[in-house]
Design a protein around this nucleic acid. Structure first.
Lengths: 328, 328
DNA sequence: GAATGATATGAAATCGTTTTCATAGTAAGA
DNA sequence: TCTTACTATGAAAACGATTTCATATCATTC
């Protein structure tokens, strides 16, 4: 492995001059520039990035925290972020928290020990009091998560609006008994529920606790939900599921029990994942424009790294849309 | 930001002693050990990893190259790898090549500039002659890719076997006219086709070039395939698709033309992705045990990093299974 | 022709660790 | 009592780059 010293002696120049060529500094004559490049090429020299980073205190790496990379929403998000980052010469370190608070905390060490220039949190497990102390080690921004207490930049969708337009759509179709599924107690879920409740109460209806379910994530959970719905004394005619996977589960199980969708039960998903178009009936869903979210968040992170003054707590809201298909 | 110097002077000791405590070296008295830990805690000291890496020439990072992270197969694979790596204190750098040779080459620079300790290639775009020169900068292993020319460790499935058991299954069901779809000309596809041809010729049948299709990847491609099959003078009664997505496309299009699956056309997928269970009929498919592949590949990489002598070119074959459902 | 400013280069300090080398004290063995 | 071997510690060198400081040359300008 050759070092800058080898290049310098091969070119008959000092390390400083080689470094200047490497970093496009002014005040290097064309002649020496050529000599340095020639020496570098002949040796196949590549700068050692650990050494560069020790000097510059920059890593050109950004940690992206997600709870489950196997969730298509997250893999699309990370895909968009990686693409944007690569364009700016940055690498993405994938941090898969697996919905584990401890694991999330471990990843913050990356910032503390200067292994990354910043952290984008596409999922948040710990509360703001726990996270806040880490902000002094480098920029942290939230993406698609909304904790009102968090003093950070938050790139996110208007989840209240998402819950609202989805529910409104079902109301407009004439439904009056609308069940509601949510995942964990994250801000995303909580706000989406606020939108649901807003739409329901605007329609002069009383929300029924018996129709509201929590910790619903997978296709299997969706199947379970249908079985529960079926047994309720007063059966809902529609379900707002919060994810296309759950919606798919509900629909499949309903069909197995010879219920018709949407006639007997209308189902609305969330995310517009590939299965939403594949299922029969195709799932009405709410599109998060995943790529936009990822690119926007990464853009802001790159800006902050370039100029830390940009890092002022604020909400950046992105639009959200209803895609009407056949399940409602 | 505090350094080891600060800790040393706070504890009234030398940097060397602090470093020894940090690295669990022998020959440090219990008393000093306590003093160092106390000083570190009080300052909230965290070692600067750039400095550590410059000394050790180790990064504790592994680059994982995939062609498309949004492909569920890859996201599951990366998920498994990340989990295993994290358990050993390593980070995964996500390298999304987007099927671009140039982009793949750029990622090799990570190895050259000592930003990662090794590279796992879950997809390969460039030929071995292009990749080989990089092997002298650090360990490179292939995962789920098989280039006979490549002198590396290859963790992979027996794709010939995969093509064989899938085709055999269709033959056992009585089919004699079996169409075949493949993606690009990668070794995976080529070997799978070898298995198909082996099964077909073993059954004393003559492979028909008109029934073999290339560059078939997406759901839409699958739909297109059905339209083509329908128009053939001699219509196949079964299709081996090479991916669940393609299988889903074929099935959906067939149903739209009022064909029954599997009665009029049997369809077999590959990968056992979530849609395989969701579609009606559920798709018969071939399971790649994604998690096993990822964990095995990462295990080997960690071993190599620990002891480079382990890095001897060889094939590590993992089992492959048929999952019979309703589409055949 | 002297003073000024721009251009060009190198020696040495620096970033924050780990490791080598030197030194010293203590315990064990002859 | 004198080696020998082990334990314990610190000073300083090393890792490989960038940057500061000093210096030298050259072209302008008054």
């Amino acid at each position: 492995m050759y070092t800058i010293k080898d290049v310098a002696s091969k070119a008959g120049l000092s390390q400083a001059t080689v470094s200047r060529v490497l970093n496009n500094h002014p005040y290097v004559s064309e002649e020496k520039k050529r000599a340095v490049h020639k020496a570098m090429d002949e040796l196949g020299y590549v700068p050692n990035s650990s050494a560069q980073r020790l000097r510059n205190l920059k890593t050109k790496k950004i940690a992206v925290l997600v709870s489950r990379i196997i969730n298509p929403f997250f893999s699309h998000l990370v895909d968009a972020m990686e693409k944007r980052a690569a364009g700016a010469g940055f690498q993405v370190i994938l941090c898969n928290t697996r919905i584990d608070k401890e694991k999330e905390l471990e990843y913050f060490q990356l910032l503390k020990s200067k292994q990354v220039d910043g952290i984008i949190m596409a999922s948040v497990e710990n509360s703001w009091e726990v996270i806040e102390p880490y902000t002094k080690y480098g920029p942290i921004i939230y993406c698609n998560e909304y904790d009102p207490a968090a003093q950070v930049i938050r790139v996110r969708l208007d989840q209240i609006e998402g819950g609202y337009i989805g529910t409104k759509h079902l109301l407009d179709k004439g439904h009056r008994k609308i069940a509601y599924c949510q995942g964990n107690d994250s801000s995303v879920s909580t706000n989406r529920r606020k939108g649901y409740l807003k739409a329901v109460t605007e329609a002069s209806l009383t929300p029924q606790p018996a129709w509201m379910f929590k910790n619903i994530f997978t296709i299997e959970d969706g199947r379970e939900i249908f079985r529960k719905l079926k047994e309720l004394p007063e059966t809902p005619t529609a379900v707002f599921t919060g994810s296309d996977e759950v919606a798919a589960g509900v629909i499949k199980e309903a069909q197995q029990h010879a219920w018709r969708v949407p006639e007997d039960l209308a189902v609305i998903g969330f995310d517009d994942q590939p299965i939403a178009e594949l299922l029969d009936p195709q799932i009405t869903t709410i599109n998060q424009f995943t790529t936009d979210i990822g690119v926007t968040a990464m853009n802001i992170m790159l800006e902050i790294i370039h100029d830390p003054a940009v890092n002022k707590p604020q909400d950046i809201l992105l639009p959200i849309h209803l895609i009407e298909r056949q399940s409602t």
